[in-house]
Computed example of a mutant assay.
Amino acid sequence: MSVKFLNLVRGDYERHGRSALNAAFVSLLVYRFGRWAIELPNPIARRFAQKIYGAINIVVANVTKIWIPPQVTIGDDFHIIHAEGSLSIHPEVVIGKRLGVMHNVTIGTNMGPGTPVIGDDVFIGVNSTVLGGIKIGDRVRIAANTAVTTNVPSDSIVVGSPAKIYPRLTPFPKKDRAQSAGQG
């Protein structure tokens, strides 16, 4: 096992409450092992490791209801916030850094070609779906019970089904230079 693999697992462990019994951590550990297995250069070792992954994944996915295939591309600091419900991610999905995802979420196809590409610093609320060949920008917040099937620009909030996209208010709006110069 590589140092990169061990660092990813250590980060997952820290992020998910430092508990080896946490369903989110166990599911991510199985995903990481599967990802490591498909990237092995030796075909015999790769096939053997994939068989081990398959056997473990059947049990873990059925117990935790979290299905993350090893083909999914996940950025750093992926966080499954609640592992009480289900999580299903299509194998072709690309996820950026620091995605926070609640339970009962589906990320995948919309019965057509393409899967979502999710940016950095995104949050997906409980019971939400992100479907189709769409792009979710950076720093997007997807509210609970939201069905997203269109592109979402960065710095947005998405609410409802069908999804309505709103610009996100920043904590410190930029002041107009001319206005702030006169206040001085």
Rank of each mutant, 00 (worst) to 15 (best):
S180M: 07
Q71D: 14
V122W: 08
V9H: 03
K65G: 01
V130C: 12
V93I: 05
I107Q: 12
T64Q: 05
S88I: 13
D77K: 14
V93R: 08
P41L: 00
G114F: 08
H16Y: 00
R47K: 14
S128F: 04
S86N: 06
I52N: 09
S128I: 03
I58A: 11
P171F: 00
N22S: 14
V30I: 11
H79Y: 14
S180F: 12
W36V: 00
E92C: 10
H103N: 14
L6V: 04
G112N: 14
I58Y: 11
L8D: 10
L28K: 11
K174H: 09
P70S: 01
V126Q: 07
N151H: 14
L21A: 14
K51A: 15
V63W: 13
S19M: 09
A37V: 01
G125L: 04
W67P: 00
K65S: 14
R168I: 11
A55D: 10
A20C: 08
A143N: 12
A61F: 04
V122N: 08
F172P: 01
L87H: 02
T129E: 08
I56K: 06
L87N: 09
P167I: 04
E14P: 02
N7H: 05
G112L: 10
N7T: 04
V148I: 05
I89N: 08
K65R: 14
V59D: 07
G34K: 03
N104R: 09
W36D: 02
V30W: 01
V59H: 13
R47A: 15
D155P: 06
L169M: 11
D176V: 01
M1L: 06
D76G: 05
F33A: 05
A55W: 12
A24E: 03
L99W: 09
R139H: 13
V159I: 15
I95K: 06
D138Q: 06
D77Q: 13
I58V: 10
G54A: 12
G125I: 00
F33K: 04
V158G: 07
L99M: 05
F25N: 09
L6C: 05
K135F: 03
V63S: 02
S156W: 01
P70E: 00
P153M: 00
N145H: 10
D12S: 08
N7E: 11
R98E: 09
A23P: 15
P43Y: 00
V26W: 05
N22A: 07
G85I: 05
V26I: 15
I52V: 15
V72L: 02
I134K: 10
K174W: 03
R168Y: 06
V26F: 07
D176C: 10
H103Q: 15
V60M: 04
I124D: 11
I38D: 02
I74Y: 04
I165C: 09
S2Q: 00
N145L: 11
P173N: 00
D77Y: 13
F123T: 12
A49V: 03
L21I: 06
G112V: 03
G125F: 05
N104S: 13
G132K: 01
Q179N: 08
Y31W: 11
V152E: 09
Y13I: 09
P113W: 07
V126T: 08
Q50H: 02
L29K: 01
S27H: 06
A24N: 04
L87V: 00
A20G: 14
G160D: 03
L131C: 09
I58W: 12
I142V: 15
L29A: 13
V105H: 08
L169K: 15
V59P: 07
R139W: 04
L40F: 06
A178W: 09
V26Y: 03
N110L: 13
A181H: 07
